[in-house]
């Protein structure tokens, strides 16, 4: 871990301003991914701005009837919130499927969104990786790719995004609220928040340098039956091979987003018009153009099977 200086910020504006003062600064909240990566010198901030004291740890109902989740709300608390459990079950389920009890107690809403890939080649600094060193090449391509992306990847990067929470937020049409170093705030739809790797896989989100997430807002509850199905090798404390977040309405319409298949939570709204026709039809459009490797081609089948089971269960519940 490289040496860094450390400060505790007291307000969001102060935090953002501090980021402006220090090139190479990073915000730290839960620290569960940042410290992990700093120990390996994959992340090398020269200055850490501790944002835990910013008070962004509350949940409030929005005037529109939605929910505003403070950036620092811990994953445990978010999943335990009665409103989340009642109205946004997919989110509670996704959070609870992630990590461990200890990690969920530390991890924050904003930090979860900013998790970096778990690609083992990204994690091994002896291996070339375009995320770590742009232009260095990608050791994962042609290597061990069972966990990697089947869609939306590029010649520069085939990593997946590891978050469960983000997949649920995507299906819920969440919006990310930020404050910039100059104090300006903006709202970024989750759909635009995470990027595909393209030829700049090191740029993972729409955040500008020094921009701080202050909250994530959810629109009014959309009702329906909520599902988050995470498939993994061991029963718990493992990253998803694939995950399926779905909200299915009484008429069979609904929404679906996938985890474990791409560099970002994967949702194709147009595919959702096929929901009443069944999983195969949805997946045909959702994963159209997928380019799996022999090691991860099973993900396509798996997604279809899981979605089929979800649709069957939703139908069964409707009677």
């Amino acid at each position: 871990m490289r040496p860094f200086t450390y400060e505790r910020a007291r307000t969001p504006a102060e935090a953002a301003a501090a980021a402006k003062r220090h090139a190479g600064a990073k915000f730290v909240a839960g620290g569960t991914n940042l410290l992990d990566l700093m120990k390996l010198e994959i992340e090398t901030p020269t200055h850490l701005i501790d944002v835990n004291g910013l008070g962004l740890d509350t949940l409030e109902t929005t005037p529109e009837g939605g929910l505003r989740i403070g950036a620092l709300v811990r994953n445990t608390d978010l999943a335990a919130d009665a409103r989340v459990r009642r109205d946004y079950g997919v989110l509670a389920r996704a959070l609870l499927a992630g990590a461990s009890g200890q990690l969920r107690n530390m991890a924050t809403t904003a930090g979860n969104l900013l998790q970096r890939t778990r690609c083992p080649y990204f994690y091994d600094t002896n291996m070339p990786c375009n995320k770590r060193v742009p232009g260095d090449g990608c050791a994962a391509i042609g290597g061990f790719t069972r966990q990697h992306a089947v869609i939306g990847a590029s010649d520069a990067c085939i990593a997946t995004h590891p978050s469960d929470m983000a997949v649920a937020l995507r299906v819920l049409d969440a919006t990310v609220e930020t404050i910039g170093p100059d104090g300006a705030t903006r709202r970024i739809p989750l759909a635009d928040f995470h990027r595909l790797p393209g030829d700049q896989p090191q740029v993972e989100t729409a955040l500008a340098a020094g921009e701080l997430i202050t909250a994530v807002t959810l629109p009014r509850p959309v009702g329906g039956a909520h599902f988050y199905r995470k498939v993994r090798d061991r029963a718990s404390f493992a990253f998803a091979l694939v995950s399926v977040a779905a909200i299915v309405q009484r008429d069979g319409s609904g929404r679906v987003a996938l985890g474990g298949v791409a560099h970002k939570p994967w949702r194709v709204e147009a595919a959702e018009s096929e929901m009443t026709k069944g999983a195969r039809a949805v997946v045909a459009r959702l994963l159209a153009g997928a380019k799996p490797t022999t090691e991860n081609a099973f993900k396509l089948k798996l997604v279809e099977r899981v979605l089929a089971a979800v649709l069957a269960e939703a139908k069964g519940a409707r009677g």
Binding site: R118, P120, M127, A139, G142, G143, R234, S236, F237
Partner: peptide, 25 residues
């Protein structure tokens, strides 16, 4: 332990990559 046959090492060389049973298993 997955071998990267090009580079000659065990790729999943930590306790997240090499899964052992947890309580729930």
């Amino acid at each position: 332990l997955v071998v990267d046959k090009r580079k000659g090492f065990f790729v999943n060389h930590d306790l997240a990559g090499y899964e052992v049973p947890v309580h729930a298993d």
